[in-house]
Design a binder for these strands. Structure first.
Length: 166
DNA sequence: CCTGTGATTGTTCAA
DNA sequence: TTGAACAATCACAGG
């Protein structure tokens, strides 16, 4: 609703102006959020009661996969820290510290996650047609490509650590 | 009561 | 191709 950033008093943190912002494209993506809600119609609102029951949530990127694990570790070392942003910053900093080889396992995980996402994507894509045209969904009768179960379960074998670092 | 926001980066979609 | 936005998390505050 309100995009007023000056809401939470916990903003005691100093503005990270000193650190290299690197031209943060989004600079507070929240600003852009209200700028154009083209996708907003498919966002949180969807879960509330929109016609979007199966909105495929994007697979977590390698960073997020790493973050999930990092969060646990961080909380153990900083159990008092309840700021999600704290973990985000620390995680982001640590993430950049990792090398490709270290990120490899995370990327691999994310990559596989993407594969699964592709399947959901197809289903969602189909739905998109319905949204555009409700009556057009009937066209799949002559084209049964929806149920394309090639390999739904591929055994989950991702132990491939044959990485040669530079 | 419930939802938004805050911070990170990556990934994905849509125009 | 580019841009915009969302993916988790957790606690709190506001409507």
């Amino acid at each position: 609703m309100k995009i007023t950033k000056s809401k939470v008093s916990t903003r005691k943190d100093k503005k990270e102006v000193s650190l290299p912002v690197e031209e943060r494209k989004v600079g507070k993506r929240k600003a852009a959020l209200k700028a154009d809600k083209s996708r907003l119609k498919w966002t949180k609102k969807a879960k509330l009661g929109k016609k979007d029951p199966d909105k495929p949530k994007r697979p977590p990127s390698a960073f997020f996969v790493f973050l999930e694990e990092f969060r646990k570790t961080y909380k153990e070392e900083h159990p008092n820290v309840k700021a999600v942003s704290a973990v985000g910053k620390a995680g982001g900093e640590k993430w950049k510290s990792l090398t490709n080889a270290e990120k490899a396992p995370y990327e691999a995980k994310a990559a596989q996650r993407k594969l699964d996402y592709e399947k959901v994507m197809k289903a969602y894509n189909k739905k998109q047609e319905s949204v555009v045209d409700d009556e057009d969904e009937e066209s799949d009768k002559s084209n049964s490509v929806v149920n394309d179960e090639d390999d739904e379960e591929t055994g989950e074998g991702e132990e491939d650590d044959d990485e040669d670092d530079d």
